[in-house]
Amino acid sequence: MTTPPRTVPAVDVVIVNWNAGRHLGDCLRSVVRADRSELEVARIVVVDNASGDDSLQGLSAADIPLDVVRNPRNRGFAVACNQGAARCDSDLLLFLNPDTELYPDSLAVVARVLRSPPEDHIGIFGGLMVDERGNPQISCSRFPTLRVYLGKMTGLDRVAPALFPSHHVRPRELTGSGPVDQVIGAFFLVRRPVFEELHGFDERYFLYLEDVDFAWRARRAGWLSYYVEQARVHHAGQVSSSQLGPWRHYLLMCSRSTYAFRHWTRPRAWALMALTVSVEPAARLAAAVLRGRWAELGATLAVYRSFLRWFRQGR
């Protein structure tokens, strides 16, 4: 009796780019070099959000079909992810940041986990983020709570972490592969049925927390997120977002307010809003004064004024 050939699952890769420079090309080359014998990469879709650099020049994915979508304006991360996913048809979707690089065995390791029967109820998979020296970086996060944000705003997450846990799970807190609240969006592998059931990422998030929101909605629908410790991914981190300067915090405030009013009780969401316009700006302004960073004072006030204007206009 002839044994039928084993079917290799297929994944489509979606990369959202905004001024990632050389990192985008490095990311594509890492996908090409990866062992794809156990997880076939059927297509790579790069969605560019109106980059002003040369990151799109000379892109190539060798034997993998490459689709490049050029948005005339920056439509935000969630919208661009959904754009890319709409061009894909494989059973798996891998959302990959342009400042990441796969290790040769990253895809093969995840493929072995995918074949494990106990993991059939897992809808989202993530890997171990490492720096250029292979040192572990932030790979997972907790679902945010009012206490988490209060600790972050005041620094109490560093003084009393037992009472005020950080949003991100520190590498030393992870003891091996297993279910987590959320794997970070730099390497975010999703089963297509889950993505379709949740109608993709919520496009009300321009940047930040769209992956947290997705993981929370998946959890409520009965799908877990799973951290795969052996699946290493080099993550440079903040290559694009660092170009935003103080406006990174504006986008974060908008996203966390959206998340709170979408997923928390109204009293807790309004409590976060109160902290956001009182405790947090006072702490940030005081820190700027103590460090002698006088230029930050005006920029901080401008960011909070813009946030209040956004909130009054109905979020």
Score class of each variant (00 low, 15 high):
residue 115 R to W: 02
residue 99 D to P: 09
residue 137 Q to V: 11
residue 128 L to D: 06
residue 141 S to I: 12
residue 70 R to N: 04
residue 52 G to P: 04
residue 143 F to W: 14
residue 131 D to S: 08
residue 109 V to M: 08
residue 152 K to L: 15
residue 135 N to Q: 15
residue 84 G to F: 02
residue 116 S to F: 01
residue 72 P to Y: 07
residue 104 P to V: 07
residue 146 L to I: 13
residue 147 R to Y: 06
residue 93 L to S: 00
residue 158 R to M: 12
residue 99 D to E: 05
residue 123 G to L: 11
residue 109 V to D: 12
residue 51 S to C: 07
residue 153 M to P: 05
residue 79 V to T: 07
residue 93 L to M: 03
residue 64 I to G: 02
residue 82 N to Y: 02
residue 126 G to H: 07
residue 51 S to Y: 03
residue 159 V to P: 05
residue 94 L to K: 03
residue 105 D to S: 07
residue 112 R to Y: 03
residue 149 Y to N: 14
residue 121 H to N: 13
residue 101 E to H: 08
residue 108 A to D: 08
residue 156 L to C: 10
residue 106 S to E: 09
residue 133 R to T: 15
residue 160 A to D: 13
residue 88 C to S: 05
residue 112 R to G: 13
residue 90 S to D: 02
residue 158 R to Y: 10
residue 159 V to I: 15
residue 116 S to P: 00
residue 135 N to A: 15
residue 48 D to P: 02
residue 132 E to W: 09
residue 128 L to W: 07
residue 143 F to R: 14
residue 112 R to C: 02
residue 126 G to R: 06
residue 102 L to A: 04
residue 125 F to T: 06
residue 99 D to Q: 02
residue 80 A to H: 05
residue 83 Q to R: 00
residue 111 A to Y: 04
residue 149 Y to M: 15
residue 79 V to F: 08
residue 136 P to T: 09
residue 107 L to S: 05
residue 143 F to A: 10
residue 51 S to F: 02
residue 128 L to E: 15
residue 75 R to F: 03
residue 138 I to P: 03
residue 90 S to G: 02
residue 106 S to F: 08
residue 113 V to C: 12
